[in-house]
């Protein structure tokens, strides 16, 4: 039974956690892709930036969280999201919009977004240094150990406070995004513009507003993902580095331009990662006497240090067999 608990902790819970992070990032990528028609490489750095804003606010008002009973950084999340959203709008205004006005090829804008990536990375490290920091300043991380009601399971399920909050954030974001896209005038206009940008212009839809809304949503989701991930682990300036490839893989697996697909894609990539670095020998050990072969001590599909290859090979596989993604996104 303990082996199963180990599996639950290392695969199911970890997969849900990292999958939620990827999903929040991938939804932003896919929205930007479908409205602005380019791969936004600076997205992972917007996640770091959001976490940095939350850290900054936590350092300024460290007593807020303990007063309410929630992590301070989580209480500050709405402000961090707003700051990131505003930054995103200004980044667009300063670096992407002038290129769009010049009618350059989309790939030039992709390159500009790489430039923005470097600028954000440089700035964040200039202000924060290069070391990792804890998002908890005046409070500490609550860890829940849930004992299972089985006799054989002596080990508890472990889940942390920020992980639970992350699931809450994800569920709230998904529901509000769904309502926004299907019930509001601007949300429908976003879908319309992703369907047919020329017709949107002809119909009198204010495309500038739609672009701004897209950046606000993408910025908010990125800030939420970055902050929640840093709360759960630590805030590292090179956070973005490990996120970029998985969130792009998630967006493409889900089908570009398809927010629900990106959500699913996030979990596909998250679980693929945890399943492939999981040591399956642990689960087989109780049956070792019945196996016809010697059980190796490590039976992980991919060694942990090669975890980064998992999203990459999923990405390549999907590009080869189904470039539109699982949910039939746009062929770009």
């Amino acid at each position: 039974m303990n082996e199963l608990v180990f599996f639950l902790n290392n695969v199911v819970i970890s997969g849900l956690v990292i999958g939620s992070i990827y999903a929040l990032g991938a939804v932003g990528i896919t929205l930007i892709f479908s409205i602005l028609r380019f791969a936004h490489f600076a997205h992972a750095d917007m996640m770091t930036l959001g976490a940095f804003f939350a850290f900054f606010l936590t350092a300024m008002f460290p007593a807020v969280g303990p007063a309410i009973g929630l992590p301070t950084a989580f209480v500050m999340l709405p402000i961090a999201m707003a700051l990131t959203a505003v930054t995103a709008i200004y980044l667009d205004k300063g670096f992407y919009k002038p290129l769009r006005k010049h009618n350059v090829k989309p790939i030039v804008i992709v390159m500009a977004s790489l430039g923005v990536t470097l600028m954000l990375q440089g700035l964040i490290r200039m202000f924060m240094g290069t070391s990792a920091r804890s998002m908890y300043i005046d409070d500490r991380k609550d860890i829940y150990r849930i004992d299972l009601p089985f006799e054989l399971a002596s080990r508890p399920l472990v889940i942390t406070d920020p992980q639970i909050l992350l699931f809450v954030v994800l569920i709230v974001s998904v529901i509000s995004l769904h309502l926004f896209l299907t019930r509001t005038r601007l949300g429908k206009a976003m879908r319309a513009m992703s369907d047919n940008p020329d017709l949107a212009r002809v119909s009198g839809i204010n495309t500038d507003t739609v672009v701004k809304v897209t950046w606000v949503i993408a910025g908010c989701l990125a800030a939420a993902a970055g902050t929640m991930l840093s709360l759960d682990v630590t805030l590292k300036p090179d956070l973005s580095f490990h996120l970029l490839l998985p969130i792009f893989a998630a967006a493409i697996v889900g089908g570009v331009g398809h927010p629900y697909g990106a959500l699913a894609g996030g979990f596909v990539i998250g679980f693929a990662e945890t399943l492939s670095v999981f040591n399956w020998a642990v689960l087989l050990r109780p049956f070792r006497d019945y196996l016809w072969f010697d059980l190796p001590s490590s039976l992980a599909i991919v060694p942990t240090e090669f975890k980064i290859t998992v999203p990459f090979f999923i990405l390549l596989a999907i590009l080869v067999w189904r470039p539109t993604g699982l949910f039939k996104g746009k062929v770009l």
């Binding site: 670096f95 430039g115 470097l118 600028m119 954000l120 990375q121 200039m126 240094g129 290069t130």
Partner: peptide, 20 residues
């Protein structure tokens, strides 16, 4: 070590400025 990150920033800035 922090301030050397200004070089990273500059590279990014040059890319965006030249493109524009």
């Amino acid at each position: 070590s922090r301030a050397l990150q200004a070089r990273v920033f500059s590279i990014g800035l040059i890319i965006t400025l030249v493109l524009r």
